[in-house]
Amino acid sequence: MGIFRGRKARTDGGASVSDRNASRADLEALREFAKTRRGVEAWIEPRTSVTQTTLLLVAGDGESIRRRVASAQAGHDFARKKLQVPVYDSNLVPIPSRKREYDLRKARATGSSSSSSSTTTTAPVAKTQTPRELRAIMTLESIAGSDPLPSNPSFDDLMRVYRKARKQAHPDRLGGQRDKWDTVEDAARVLGLPD
Protein backbone atom coordinates (compact mmCIF):
# COMPACT_ATOMS: atom_id res chain seq x y z
CA MET A 1 0.00 0.00 0.00
CA GLY A 2 2.99 2.27 -0.30
CA ILE A 3 3.78 2.85 3.34
CA PHE A 4 7.37 3.70 2.43
CA ARG A 5 6.50 5.88 -0.54
CA GLY A 6 7.35 9.52 -0.03
CA ARG A 7 9.65 8.95 2.96
CA LYS A 8 12.48 11.42 3.03
CA ALA A 9 16.11 10.55 3.64
CA ARG A 10 17.27 11.31 7.15
CA THR A 11 20.62 12.19 8.68
CA ASP A 12 22.09 10.32 11.64
CA GLY A 13 20.48 12.91 13.90
CA GLY A 14 17.05 12.20 12.41
CA ALA A 15 16.68 15.46 10.48
CA SER A 16 14.91 15.26 7.15
CA VAL A 17 17.01 15.73 4.00
CA SER A 18 14.77 16.80 1.15
CA ASP A 19 17.45 17.29 -1.51
CA ARG A 20 17.54 14.91 -4.45
CA ASN A 21 20.40 12.47 -4.98
CA ALA A 22 23.33 12.95 -7.36
CA SER A 23 22.67 12.48 -11.07
CA ARG A 24 24.64 12.08 -14.30
CA ALA A 25 23.87 15.72 -15.08
CA ASP A 26 25.64 16.73 -11.85
CA LEU A 27 28.75 14.77 -12.81
CA GLU A 28 28.69 16.17 -16.35
CA ALA A 29 28.45 19.74 -15.00
CA LEU A 30 31.47 19.09 -12.77
CA ARG A 31 33.40 17.52 -15.65
CA GLU A 32 32.63 20.47 -17.97
CA PHE A 33 33.62 23.01 -15.30
CA ALA A 34 36.98 21.29 -14.64
CA LYS A 35 37.69 21.02 -18.37
CA THR A 36 37.01 24.71 -19.13
CA ARG A 37 38.65 26.39 -16.11
CA ARG A 38 42.26 26.77 -14.94
CA GLY A 39 43.65 25.95 -11.50
CA VAL A 40 40.66 23.86 -10.39
CA GLU A 41 40.72 22.26 -6.93
CA ALA A 42 38.00 20.15 -5.28
CA TRP A 43 36.49 20.03 -1.79
CA ILE A 44 34.26 17.28 -0.44
CA GLU A 45 31.47 18.74 1.70
CA PRO A 46 29.88 16.16 4.03
CA ARG A 47 26.18 15.45 4.25
CA THR A 48 24.27 17.65 6.69
CA SER A 49 20.65 17.96 7.68
CA VAL A 50 20.30 20.51 4.86
CA THR A 51 22.18 18.91 1.95
CA GLN A 52 23.49 15.66 0.58
CA THR A 53 27.25 15.14 0.22
CA THR A 54 28.54 17.64 -2.32
CA LEU A 55 31.66 18.17 -4.40
CA LEU A 56 32.73 21.80 -4.67
CA LEU A 57 35.09 22.77 -7.48
CA VAL A 58 36.89 26.12 -7.21
CA ALA A 59 38.83 27.56 -10.16
CA GLY A 60 41.97 29.66 -9.84
CA ASP A 61 39.99 32.92 -10.17
CA GLY A 62 37.48 31.86 -7.47
CA GLU A 63 34.61 30.81 -9.74
CA SER A 64 32.98 27.69 -8.34
CA ILE A 65 30.41 24.98 -8.90
CA ARG A 66 28.82 22.70 -6.31
CA ARG A 67 27.02 19.47 -7.17
CA ARG A 68 25.77 16.46 -5.25
CA VAL A 69 27.74 13.21 -5.26
CA ALA A 70 26.73 9.73 -4.11
CA SER A 71 29.16 9.69 -1.16
CA ALA A 72 32.32 11.33 0.11
CA GLN A 73 34.40 8.46 -1.26
CA ALA A 74 32.68 8.61 -4.67
CA GLY A 75 33.31 12.37 -4.82
CA HIS A 76 36.94 11.93 -3.84
CA ASP A 77 37.48 9.23 -6.48
CA PHE A 78 35.67 11.23 -9.17
CA ALA A 79 37.75 14.37 -8.52
CA ARG A 80 41.07 12.55 -8.27
CA LYS A 81 40.68 9.94 -11.02
CA LYS A 82 38.24 11.41 -13.55
CA LEU A 83 38.88 15.14 -13.19
CA GLN A 84 42.52 14.75 -12.11
CA VAL A 85 42.40 17.69 -9.69
CA PRO A 86 43.58 17.94 -6.08
CA VAL A 87 40.79 17.06 -3.65
CA TYR A 88 40.41 18.07 0.01
CA ASP A 89 38.00 17.39 2.86
CA SER A 90 36.25 20.66 3.74
CA ASN A 91 36.30 19.69 7.44
CA LEU A 92 40.11 19.57 7.34
CA VAL A 93 41.10 22.12 4.67
CA PRO A 94 39.06 25.33 4.55
CA ILE A 95 37.44 26.42 1.31
CA PRO A 96 39.70 29.13 -0.17
CA SER A 97 38.87 32.78 0.34
CA ARG A 98 39.11 33.36 -3.42
CA LYS A 99 35.70 31.65 -3.77
CA ARG A 100 34.07 34.02 -1.29
CA GLU A 101 35.77 37.04 -2.87
CA TYR A 102 34.60 35.97 -6.35
CA ASP A 103 31.02 35.46 -5.10
CA LEU A 104 31.03 38.87 -3.42
CA ARG A 105 32.40 40.59 -6.52
CA LYS A 106 29.75 38.93 -8.67
CA ALA A 107 26.93 39.80 -6.26
CA ARG A 108 28.08 43.41 -5.97
CA ALA A 109 28.31 43.71 -9.75
CA THR A 110 24.76 42.45 -10.26
CA GLY A 111 23.40 44.39 -7.28
CA SER A 112 24.95 47.69 -8.25
CA SER A 113 23.18 49.88 -10.77
CA SER A 114 26.46 51.31 -12.06
CA SER A 115 29.77 49.60 -12.77
CA SER A 116 31.72 50.12 -9.57
CA SER A 117 34.98 48.62 -8.40
CA SER A 118 35.06 45.63 -6.06
CA THR A 119 36.40 47.83 -3.25
CA THR A 120 33.18 49.83 -3.04
CA THR A 121 31.31 48.66 0.04
CA THR A 122 28.25 50.88 -0.06
CA ALA A 123 26.78 49.93 -3.42
CA PRO A 124 23.01 49.65 -3.02
CA VAL A 125 21.28 46.43 -4.00
CA ALA A 126 18.81 48.38 -6.13
CA LYS A 127 17.68 52.00 -6.55
CA THR A 128 14.18 51.14 -5.39
CA GLN A 129 13.32 47.81 -3.89
CA THR A 130 10.32 45.85 -4.99
CA PRO A 131 7.77 44.75 -2.39
CA ARG A 132 9.19 41.23 -2.71
CA GLU A 133 12.71 42.48 -1.89
CA LEU A 134 11.40 44.50 1.05
CA ARG A 135 9.66 41.40 2.43
CA ALA A 136 12.90 39.44 2.03
CA ILE A 137 14.85 42.10 3.94
CA MET A 138 12.25 42.14 6.74
CA THR A 139 12.37 38.32 6.91
CA LEU A 140 16.15 38.36 7.34
CA GLU A 141 15.92 41.10 9.97
CA SER A 142 13.31 39.24 12.01
CA ILE A 143 15.13 35.88 11.95
CA ALA A 144 18.48 37.54 12.70
CA GLY A 145 16.91 39.58 15.51
CA SER A 146 18.61 42.72 14.24
CA ASP A 147 17.50 46.33 14.09
CA PRO A 148 15.77 47.42 10.88
CA LEU A 149 18.13 48.32 8.07
CA PRO A 150 17.95 51.76 6.48
CA SER A 151 15.87 52.10 3.35
CA ASN A 152 18.08 51.10 0.43
CA PRO A 153 20.68 49.23 2.55
CA SER A 154 24.21 48.61 1.33
CA PHE A 155 25.33 45.20 0.14
CA ASP A 156 27.52 44.83 3.24
CA ASP A 157 24.57 45.61 5.55
CA LEU A 158 22.51 42.95 3.81
CA MET A 159 25.32 40.40 4.02
CA ARG A 160 25.80 41.09 7.75
CA VAL A 161 22.10 40.47 8.47
CA TYR A 162 22.01 37.45 6.13
CA ARG A 163 24.96 35.79 7.88
CA LYS A 164 23.39 36.37 11.28
CA ALA A 165 20.03 34.97 10.10
CA ARG A 166 21.76 31.88 8.64
CA LYS A 167 23.55 31.31 11.92
CA GLN A 168 20.30 31.59 13.89
CA ALA A 169 18.30 29.30 11.60
CA HIS A 170 20.85 26.61 10.70
CA PRO A 171 19.22 23.19 11.25
CA ASP A 172 22.41 21.64 12.65
CA ARG A 173 22.43 24.24 15.40
CA LEU A 174 20.59 23.56 18.63
CA GLY A 175 17.19 25.15 18.19
CA GLY A 176 17.68 25.57 14.43
CA GLN A 177 14.73 24.71 12.21
CA ARG A 178 14.65 23.54 8.60
CA ASP A 179 11.67 25.71 7.66
CA LYS A 180 13.42 28.83 8.99
CA TRP A 181 16.57 27.87 7.08
CA ASP A 182 14.56 27.52 3.86
CA THR A 183 12.96 30.92 4.49
CA VAL A 184 16.38 32.55 4.96
CA GLU A 185 17.75 30.94 1.79
CA ASP A 186 14.67 32.01 -0.22
CA ALA A 187 15.07 35.59 1.01
CA ALA A 188 18.76 35.56 0.04
CA ARG A 189 17.87 34.35 -3.47
CA VAL A 190 15.36 37.18 -3.88
CA LEU A 191 18.08 39.68 -2.90
CA GLY A 192 20.78 37.98 -4.99
CA LEU A 193 23.08 37.33 -2.02
CA PRO A 194 25.85 34.71 -2.37
CA ASP A 195 26.09 31.73 -0.01
Rank of each mutant, 00 (worst) to 15 (best):
S117Q: 12
Y102S: 07
M138L: 13
L92Q: 08
A107Y: 02
A126R: 10
Q84A: 15
S154G: 06
S90L: 12
L134Q: 04
T130N: 02
P96S: 15
A123Y: 08
P124I: 11
K127M: 10
S151R: 15
D89L: 05
T122A: 14
T139R: 12
S114Q: 13
P150F: 10
A126M: 02
A109S: 08
K99R: 15
N152L: 04
T128W: 04
N91S: 13
P96H: 10
A126I: 04
R132S: 10
T110W: 09
R108A: 09
P153L: 08
S154Q: 04
K106V: 13
L104G: 00
R132D: 07
A144S: 07
K99E: 09
D147L: 07
M138A: 15
R100C: 05
L140Q: 10
L140R: 13
L149N: 05
P131I: 01
I137Y: 02
A136V: 07
G111E: 05
D103T: 04
S112Y: 04
S146M: 06
V93W: 00
P86K: 04
R132E: 12
T122Q: 14
G145H: 05
A136H: 03
P150T: 13
K127P: 08
S154N: 05
S154P: 00
A107F: 04
I143Y: 03
L92T: 09
T121C: 08
M138H: 14
A144T: 06
V85Y: 01
V93M: 03
I95D: 00
I143H: 01
S154H: 07
T120F: 12
R100A: 11
I143M: 01
R98E: 06
V85D: 00
E133C: 01
T119H: 12
S154I: 05
R135E: 07
N91L: 14
Q129T: 08
T130P: 03
T130D: 01
E141S: 10
P96K: 12
S114D: 06
Q84D: 13
R108F: 08
S97T: 13
P150L: 07
I95W: 02
R132Y: 02
T110I: 13
S115D: 08
P94C: 09
E101P: 01
S154A: 09
P94L: 14
K99Q: 13
P153T: 04
S112C: 14
P153Q: 06
T130V: 02
K99P: 00
A136E: 00
P96N: 12
P94Y: 10
T122F: 15
P131E: 00
T139P: 01
L104S: 01
P131H: 00
E133Q: 13
Q84F: 06
Q129R: 15
D103Q: 08
I143V: 11
S154L: 06
K99T: 04
T120Q: 10
K106C: 09
E133I: 02
N91P: 00
